[in-house]
Design a binder for these strands. Structure first.
Lengths: 152, 152
DNA sequence: TTATGTGCAAACTCTTTGCATTACC
DNA sequence: GGTAATGCAAAGAGTTTGCACATAA
């Protein structure tokens, strides 16, 4: 999948703001930048920390309000990671699912076409019109498996 | 899958209690009964309501402590339903996943062998030792799809 | 009798809301 | 200038913890 530039997402944000008759704000752009630069999925608290580095004083309330707005506008994807709660990532257009290491917390993204088709079939068989899904696979990554072998 | 009786699960509970050198308690059995009789996945608050009907005064703290214990002992399965938070169901032994209607909240359980195998393959390809997974499919059920057709 | 289990209330975490002030158009 | 956006603090929801008392072994 081709990497899009930050300006692409800033443009989408400005369009969404205009469409809804809202006003531009520095904070929304700053939060979008943080999400763009993030290597992984961030919690609201983590986003708050990052945005403060860039934008001085930013309230956590603004982070929550902005994330809710981004979610509605599909600028971000929300993922629930078990006990770790909601996390956010920039919606770069490519749907994917997650493998999560229960030892070190590493998250690996993957996409599997066969899986997507299978889900469609399952939903159809149950009479459901499928809109979205979330699949998390929990396990031990290669490194952590190796470590636990050494221990035992 | 054959339906097991309540006594089967009570026995498992008593074994777990003995194994850990703990003491029997009425509240734990009452909570187990509630889970056994539940038609669907219950939130801690719902479990609390049900247990109070049967057992007079039961603290919400006891419900949380007991659910944590049941979870460790694999007597219950925990499911995260998006914004609705953690829910619990008795572990009846048969793993399954969930289809969730975003209109009416209906939850349909399903099991698909092909899906299980596919997950194993995906995890293996990524070097993960798969321990568990959760897959939720979100969509509109047959009834709700029909209603929204009428509206439009 | 002694350790575990419980209920209650307080504490804590995460998230949302009200309101005065600031920033955008 | 008018309206939306923000920061702060307070309020809520959900969950956990401390402690005195109750209860099982």
């Amino acid at each position: 999948m081709e990497q899009k530039e930050l300006s692409h997402y800033l443009k989408k944000l400005r369009e969404a703001v205009r469409r809804r008759g809202l006003k531009h704000s520095q904070q929304r752009e700053a939060i979008l930048k943080v999400l763009y630069n993030a290597a992984c999925h961030l919690s609201p608290e983590q986003i708050h920390q990052e945005v403060k580095k860039e934008c001085g004083s930013v309230g956590i309330a603004t982070v929550y309000r902005t994330l809710a707005f981004f979610e509605q506008e599909k600028l971000v994807c929300t993922i629930f990671f078990g006990n770790e709660g909601k996390k956010y990532e920039l919606n770069r257009g490519g749907h994917h699912d997650h493998l999560i290491c229960i030892e070190c917390g590493k998250i690996v993204e993957f996409f599997d076409d066969e899986l997507e088709k299978l889900q469609e079939r399952i939903a159809k068989d149950a009479g459901f019109e499928l809109l979205s899904h979330q699949m998390n696979l929990y396990g031990r990554c290669r490194e952590c498996s190796a470590v636990s072998c050494q221990r035992s």
